[in-house]
Each structure stands twice: as structure tokens, then as C-alpha cells.
Simulated assay, not measured.
Amino acid sequence: MPTSQEQPRRRQSRGERRIAQLLEAAATVFTSTGYTAASTNAIAREAGVSPGTLYQFFPNKEAIAIELGGRLVAEYQAAYGEALAPVDPAIPLEMVVNAIVDQFIDFNCRRPVFFALMHGPDVPGRIAEEHDVLHKTVIDRIQGLLSPFLTDLPAEEITRVAQVCMAVYMAGLELILAREGADREAYVQELKNVLLRYLDPLVGDRLGGTPEQGP
């Protein structure tokens, strides 16, 4: 027979599995309908449980979104930590851009709910605040990545370059997530091309690119 210590552990394990099941169902619903149109009934139906079971773990839709958002932020932090690691100046600019874009796109394609939840019009305030902090952190990381190769530019201009890169990426990401297969791959390549053509004359041979030639 299970000991008195094993029983609580088993209940806890079942509870964790149920929470994970509900969060994955919520991710599907938020992605397909958006946060505003989603309901706890739709999430419970997607998870294959009764609304009563859902309410045992989450009091409302906002609580589900906040828990899911926190986990997504942690996953995203791990992704950008790897993608925006310091770069060897000998690596060509095209390889750097390709690697960074590929890792960020891979995360967002695997977890489309991140874009749907973090950039929706009516997400809970706590999620919006977390996203604002996350966005600033990513900008800072991009700025730190570029700074050693843009030594002629003042800090505020490097910040501007980082912000433009992020804005271009976000605009491209929305187009990319709306497509699949070869069409999606083509849009990914277009995004890489835009970023490369923007950065190349700024960075030049300091990141393996080719500086613009004078007349």
C-alpha cells in the first residue's frame, strides 16, 4: 500500500499534469480565438475536462493567462539568451542575422500563443507589464550584441538601431506566423534580407560584412 508520504506526492503529480493539460488547451484556444474571445468553457472543452475541473485549479480566464504568460516568458528568456549570445567578430554578418532570426522564429512558430497572448489588444495588465520588461531586456541585449561593432556610434544611436531591428522583426513575425510551409520560409528569408541590408552598411567589415564603397 502507498505510504502516507507517497499519497500527497501522487496527488501533487496528478495536479501538475492537469495544470499542464489546461495550460496547453488554453494556448490552443488563445492562439485560435485571441484572449478576449476565449472562455473558460472553451478551454475546458479543449482540455477534455468539465468546467468544474478547470475551476479546481484556476478561478478565471485571467488566472490561466497569467500562469501561461509567466511560463512563456521563461521559455522566451531561455531562447533569447541563446540567440543573443556574444558573437565572434570573424563571423560574417549574414550568418549572425540568419542564426538569430532562425532561433527567434523557431520559438514563435513552436509557441504561437506567445505572440497571440503578448501582443493582443486586451491582455491582462500583469502580462502587458511583463511583456514591456521583456521587450526592454531584449532591446538591451541586441544593443549589447551590436555595441562592440558600432564603436563609432554613440550609445543612443546604437539603441535606436536595436529598436529598429526589433520593430522590423516584429512586423515580419506577424506576416510569418500567418503562413505555412514554403510560403513561410520565403517570408523568413525576406525578413533576413531586410535586416541584413539595414545592418550591413552600419556594421561593415567589423562583423564580417562588406562596407559600402565610395564613388
Rank of each mutant, 00 (worst) to 15 (best):
L72H: 05
L72Y: 08
E75L: 12
E75V: 02
A78P: 03
A78Y: 11
A83N: 06
L84K: 03
V87R: 13
P89A: 09
E94M: 10
M95L: 06
V97E: 01
N98G: 12
N98R: 15
I100G: 01
V101I: 15
Q103Y: 07
Q103D: 13
F104L: 15
F104V: 06
I105D: 07
D106A: 15
C109F: 07
F114D: 03
F115N: 10
A116H: 03
M118L: 08
M118S: 09
H119S: 09
G120Q: 04
D122G: 00
P124A: 08
G125I: 10
R126Y: 09
A128F: 01
E129K: 07
E129S: 12
E130S: 09
L134P: 02
T137H: 11
V138I: 12
I139N: 01
I139C: 02
D140T: 10
G144E: 13
L145M: 14
F149M: 13
L150D: 02
L150I: 00
T151A: 11
D152M: 08
L153S: 00
E156G: 00
I158L: 11
V164H: 11
C165I: 05
V168D: 12
Y169N: 01
M170I: 09
L175M: 08
I176W: 01
I176D: 02
I176K: 01
R179E: 15
R179N: 14
R184S: 10
V188H: 03
V188W: 04
Q189C: 06
L196W: 02
R197C: 11
R197P: 04
Y198C: 05
D200H: 03
G204M: 05
R206C: 14
